[in-house]
Deep mutational scan, measured.
Amino acid sequence: LVRYRTISKIPQITLNFVDLKGDPFLASPTSDREIIAPKIKERTHNVTEKVTQVLSLGADVLPEYKLQAPRIHRWTILHYSPFKAVWDWLILLLVIYTAVFTPYSAAFLLKETEEGPPATECGYACQPLAVVDLIVDIMFIVDILINFRTTYVNANEEVVSHPGRIAVHYFKGWFLIDMVAAIPFDLLIFGSGSEELIGLLKTARLLRLVRVARKLDRYSEYGAAVLFLLMCTFALIAHWLACIWYAIGNMEQPHMDSRIGWLHNLGDQIGKPYNSSGLGGPSIKDKYVTALYFTFSSLTSVGFGNVSPNTNSEKIFSICVMLIGSLMYASIFGNVSAIIQRLYSGTARYHTQMLRVREFIRFHQIPNPLRQRLEEYFQHAWSYTNGIDMNAVLKGFPECLQADICLHLNRSLLQHCKPFRGATKGCLRALAMKFKTTHAPPGDTLVHAGDLLTALYFISRGSIEILRGDVVVAILGKNDIFGEPLNLYARPGKSNGDVRALTYCDLHKIHR
């Protein structure tokens, strides 16, 4: 019993810090008490220290592992850092350059016999395009090294910054494609005289377009951006097909006994025919423009016929181009109408809503002055909100995010209106959640004399007048207030005048 009563005193000691020596009952000389009392004092002292730490809000209350900052290894790049964003855009520009100039170089340097010394005699450094290609190869190699040090988000939505895990993730992902696209074939085969082989191998750079397509997928929600990307894709495919079309004609031209190829026909049409040795002929500019003209006309199913396939190889390629053109029509131009419709969806919704308003007016036989006010209010409210119901949009977000959005939407009023000066951010967040926005066209009466005042109004834009009878008592403008002081009276009061809008007004109100 003594032991039980001794232990039962522990909660009292913990909360009230009572010393055991003052209790005459606990001072009985028993061996059990002498053993338990020192333990009680020690526990009391420890609990006292913990309570003191909690009340003082000291940093040592938290466990040590929670006080440590997340460790980022040296030379690790955050995937959302500004440097990584700028670097990704730079790589994107280099990939676009590669997609345009690599097929052009591979096709127009394929057994090209233009006048001038061969590239091997001039030297590697004197070729501007080769120098640019070398810079692109170096940048792609540097990009691989950067990807080995860039964080990523795993399946659990955690940012991984450990170098080993980053390397394994990159090896399992895009490393092989990036490595093949970054191989400097110019340096590996330079001086061997195989410019045709170098041009063909350099087309491996186009593998990076797969990554670019995935990154550009984030802009699919913007109709104008999608339309622009589709047109660029169409032009890029036409450019690639033009390079292939020229390569076919250029390879067949020296081996044909009869002059029936499209390059021969082009030379005869523009007065620059090929001679018996295969030299001469149109310039590279004429060849490229004509090839691009043929691919565009074939892809769009126009086909004027002034550039036509004559050999079997050219006919087979033309059939493939027609098939590609039909697929592009289905996948690209078939979506253009939907994209344009999405661009004008706001206008369509406006006309639909206006039609419903006019049908309501016609069905209920609203008189002319009231009908005009109804239409003007709808037009003004639509121009202010673009038909978007803010309350319906915010309803799907958590309250903390709703408060931040409301604070942002009402920031101008909260910053410049005098009653809100000096208020804490928590108070402003709470008030912003209570605001209701209303609009009024010129001549609209917001409050009639004798109406119950259940709200306090803040003028965000425009001006109003307060009338008693036919006498203008006051004219209020931006950041002015009218209405009933909230919670100042037990019952809502009545208006002693009319409140009429002089201009288009936007008002925020808080109800009782």
Score class of each variant (00 low, 15 high):
285 K>A: 13
309 P>C: 01
274 Y>Q: 01
82 P>W: 08
413 L>P: 09
288 Y>A: 01
432 A>D: 03
138 I>R: 01
448 H>D: 02
231 M>I: 09
206 L>M: 08
329 Y>S: 08
76 T>L: 13
285 K>S: 10
214 R>C: 04
129 L>D: 03
330 A>G: 03
97 Y>P: 01
373 R>D: 03
117 P>F: 06
364 H>K: 01
380 H>F: 10
220 S>M: 09
293 Y>G: 01
260 I>H: 15
89 W>D: 01
163 P>N: 03
395 K>S: 12
195 E>L: 13
106 A>D: 01
288 Y>Q: 01
218 R>T: 08
156 N>L: 12
379 Q>R: 10
274 Y>C: 01
136 V>K: 07
386 N>M: 10
372 Q>L: 09
230 L>D: 04
366 I>E: 02
396 G>D: 15
183 I>R: 01
372 Q>H: 09
190 F>K: 14
188 L>Y: 08
184 P>E: 01
227 L>T: 04
68 Q>L: 12
273 P>F: 01
392 A>V: 08
194 S>H: 13
209 L>D: 01
254 P>H: 03
71 R>P: 12
139 M>H: 03
246 Y>C: 01
122 C>S: 01
420 F>P: 01
369 P>M: 03
91 I>V: 14
139 M>W: 01
251 M>P: 01
238 A>M: 04
257 D>L: 04
340 I>G: 02
333 F>R: 03
143 D>H: 01
350 Y>H: 04
263 L>A: 01
92 L>E: 03
358 R>W: 02
208 R>V: 09
239 H>V: 01
104 Y>R: 01
373 R>A: 04
398 P>W: 03
119 A>M: 05
82 P>D: 02
324 I>H: 01
297 S>P: 01
338 A>Y: 09
228 F>T: 12
413 L>A: 07
143 D>M: 01
358 R>F: 01
167 A>K: 01
445 T>D: 03
302 V>A: 03
193 G>Q: 13
273 P>R: 01
208 R>D: 01
370 L>T: 01
306 N>M: 01
378 F>C: 13
139 M>C: 04
260 I>A: 03
353 Q>P: 01
369 P>E: 09
111 K>W: 14
209 L>V: 09
243 C>A: 01
278 G>W: 01
266 L>P: 01
92 L>G: 01
338 A>N: 03
416 H>R: 07
216 L>R: 04
111 K>R: 06
126 C>W: 01
229 L>A: 05
117 P>I: 14
310 N>Q: 04
72 I>Y: 14
98 T>P: 01
210 V>R: 14
124 Y>M: 04
332 I>H: 03
268 D>Q: 13
232 C>D: 01
404 D>Q: 03
229 L>F: 11
191 G>R: 13
212 V>F: 09
377 Y>H: 07
378 F>A: 13
311 T>F: 01
77 I>G: 01
79 H>S: 01
256 M>A: 14
240 W>A: 01
211 R>W: 01
217 D>K: 10
382 W>V: 03
304 F>W: 03
392 A>W: 04
395 K>F: 04
448 H>L: 06
92 L>H: 03
90 L>Y: 03
203 T>K: 01
252 E>A: 01
424 T>K: 09
221 E>S: 07
380 H>E: 07
103 P>K: 01
70 P>G: 14
257 D>T: 08
395 K>I: 07
215 K>D: 03
433 M>S: 06
211 R>Q: 09
383 S>M: 10
137 D>S: 05
131 V>Q: 05
415 Q>I: 12
87 W>L: 01
308 S>E: 01
224 A>V: 14
309 P>D: 01
87 W>V: 01
346 G>M: 05
89 W>V: 04
435 F>A: 03
436 K>C: 06
254 P>E: 15
167 A>Q: 01
415 Q>K: 11
266 L>C: 03
205 R>K: 09
425 K>Y: 09
159 V>P: 04
245 W>P: 01
248 I>D: 01
438 T>D: 08
219 Y>V: 13
122 C>K: 01
237 I>S: 04
274 Y>P: 01
326 S>E: 04
117 P>Y: 06
391 N>V: 10
183 I>D: 01
260 I>K: 05
432 A>S: 08
167 A>H: 01
179 M>S: 12
368 N>E: 08
331 S>W: 12
173 G>F: 04
432 A>I: 08
382 W>Y: 15
199 G>H: 12
122 C>E: 01
323 L>N: 01
286 D>K: 01
444 D>P: 01
368 N>P: 11
440 A>W: 04
242 A>H: 01
304 F>Y: 14
436 K>F: 07
124 Y>W: 05
283 S>H: 01
118 P>E: 03
134 L>C: 05
69 A>M: 04
413 L>G: 01
391 N>R: 05
111 K>D: 11
219 Y>D: 01
277 S>E: 12
426 G>P: 08
74 R>F: 08
276 S>C: 04
118 P>Y: 01
72 I>F: 12
388 I>L: 08
326 S>Y: 05
111 K>T: 05
385 T>I: 01
259 R>E: 06
442 P>E: 05
95 V>M: 04
209 L>K: 01
396 G>H: 06
73 H>V: 05
348 A>M: 13
217 D>Q: 08
107 A>N: 01
158 E>P: 04
65 Y>A: 11
249 G>R: 01
262 W>C: 01
416 H>E: 14
275 N>F: 01
285 K>R: 13
444 D>E: 09
98 T>W: 01
184 P>W: 01
309 P>I: 01
405 I>R: 02
222 Y>Q: 06
346 G>N: 13
145 L>T: 04
180 V>D: 01
141 I>A: 09
362 R>Q: 05
304 F>N: 01
80 Y>T: 07
249 G>V: 01
425 K>V: 07
192 S>M: 08
350 Y>D: 01
150 T>I: 01
278 G>Q: 03
284 I>W: 01
112 E>F: 05
98 T>F: 01
203 T>L: 10
336 V>E: 03
257 D>V: 05
171 F>K: 01
442 P>I: 04
190 F>N: 12
330 A>W: 07
105 S>N: 15
64 E>D: 10
427 C>L: 08
339 I>R: 03
428 L>E: 03
418 K>T: 05
198 I>F: 14
405 I>V: 08
95 V>K: 01
279 L>H: 14
425 K>M: 10
186 D>M: 11
209 L>G: 05
331 S>D: 01
66 K>W: 08
135 I>Y: 01
363 F>K: 06
106 A>C: 01
333 F>H: 06
309 P>L: 01
263 L>S: 01
162 H>M: 09
341 Q>T: 08
291 A>T: 01
166 I>M: 13
185 F>V: 05
406 C>D: 01
222 Y>S: 05
112 E>N: 04
135 I>G: 03
409 L>P: 02
128 P>M: 07
429 R>W: 01
234 F>Q: 13
203 T>G: 05
251 M>Q: 03
190 F>V: 14
445 T>R: 04
306 N>G: 01
290 T>Y: 01
158 E>T: 10
443 G>S: 03
355 L>S: 14
165 R>P: 05
266 L>S: 01
83 F>I: 05
345 S>L: 08
377 Y>T: 12
381 A>Q: 11
434 K>G: 03
415 Q>T: 08
183 I>A: 10
82 P>Q: 10
185 F>Y: 08
98 T>G: 01
213 A>G: 09
167 A>D: 01
254 P>S: 15
210 V>Y: 09
225 A>P: 05
265 N>P: 01
68 Q>S: 07
449 A>D: 13
76 T>M: 08
338 A>I: 15
222 Y>G: 05
169 H>Y: 10
337 S>L: 03
94 L>D: 05
431 L>E: 02
424 T>H: 09
216 L>P: 01
368 N>T: 10
254 P>N: 15
403 A>L: 01
364 H>Q: 03
409 L>A: 06
75 W>L: 08
346 G>T: 13
173 G>N: 09
335 N>K: 12
257 D>P: 14
127 Q>S: 08
116 G>I: 08
141 I>M: 05
286 D>R: 01
172 K>E: 04
271 G>C: 01
408 H>A: 01
323 L>S: 03
229 L>I: 11
408 H>C: 03
176 L>I: 14
388 I>F: 15
95 V>S: 01
183 I>F: 09
259 R>M: 03
370 L>C: 03
